[in-house]
Design a protein around this nucleic acid. Structure first.
Length: 262
DNA sequence: GAGCTGATGGTCT
DNA sequence: GACCATCAGCTCG
């Protein structure tokens, strides 16, 4: 994967002003940037709006949690799930529609050291510090929660605009292609124009249409027949498909008819 | 390698 | 109080 072949031109807001299932396959091969880390997307899932997609957070209408999804397109909807993970979406369609694309996996194309640091456990777990086990580079952003960690996306980034306004001027001194990493710094040279703390989606290198596959979405319990998961066939960073598995009853719910008295 | 399971807390019914 | 757009660590083969 040559960094030099990825276009650094930012995608306009109009790119996201379409139905999520049209935006999703077009996002494959694009580059999502937040701070010093950039990820070339290899797997995404589309989610529809209220009443039309039972698997979507917005299916039952607007709530404080999903309000960002009802906002203007091109913004990040970051939510917390399973008590410990964040996942990131890109909002589609004009205000009020409530649809988005979940970014599920990608390849780190800039900020590799930063991503490795974020993804290596150690500090914060059991009070341990020091380097944890090494995460293979292909696994750094393989899965929606891992991708969010690699990009440093947290609750506070919910609602962040991912459209890089004024980017042409920022890119002026560049060739239009992504630069390689500096020697000492892990920051790619083309990132210097991106305002600190902001996000952007760049053109990157769109996936070959012939390599795009689609199928049922991962881990959702409803609308299994909707093939709105899209990925680049054969890419090693695509996350393994997992069908939804009903959660087991908690052990506290002692099975009826079997008293623990004995 | 595949398969299973505990952890963990916000959200919604 | 159940569910959840998940992950890492473990066992087993």
């Amino acid at each position: 994967m040559g960094l030099g072949q990825l276009s650094a031109a930012p995608l306009p807001r109009s790119f996201f002003d379409r139905p999520s299932h049209e935006v999703a396959p077009d996002l494959l091969g694009r580059v999502l940037v937040h701070g010093p880390v950039a990820v070339r997307l290899t797997e995404v899932e589309a989610y529809g709006g209220p009443g039309e997609d039972p698997a979507a957070h917005t299916y039952r209408g607007r709530t404080p949690r999903n309000a960002v999804m009802f906002g203007p397109p091109g913004h990040l909807y970051v939510y917390f799930t399973y008590g410990m993970h964040f996942c990131a979406n890109l909002v589609c369609l004009p205000e009020g529609h409530g649809s988005a694309v979940l970014v599920r996996a990608g390849e780190i194309v800039a900020g590799l050291d930063e991503a490795r640091t974020r993804r290596s456990p150690g500090i914060g777990r059991d009070g341990r510090d020091g380097p944890g086990r090494r995460v293979p580079d292909r696994d750094l952003a393989r899965g929606p929660a891992r991708l969010a960690v690699a990009l440093g996306l947290l609750r506070e980034h919910n609602g962040l605009d991912a459209i890089w306004e004024g980017a042409p001027a920022a890119l002026d001194p560049l060739t239009g292609n992504l630069g390689r990493h500096g020697h000492g710094s892990d920051h790619a040279t083309w990132l210097t124009g991106l305002p600190h703390g902001s996000a952007a989606v760049l053109e990157g290198r769109p996936a070959d249409p012939g390599a795009i596959r689609s199928g049922p979405r991962t881990g959702v319990s409803t609308a299994k027949e909707t093939p709105w998961r899209f990925w680049i066939d054969g890419d090693p960073t695509v996350s393994p498909y997992r069908a939804h598995v009903p959660r087991r009853r908690s052990s506290a719910a002692t099975s009826v008819g079997e008293t623990p008295s004995s």
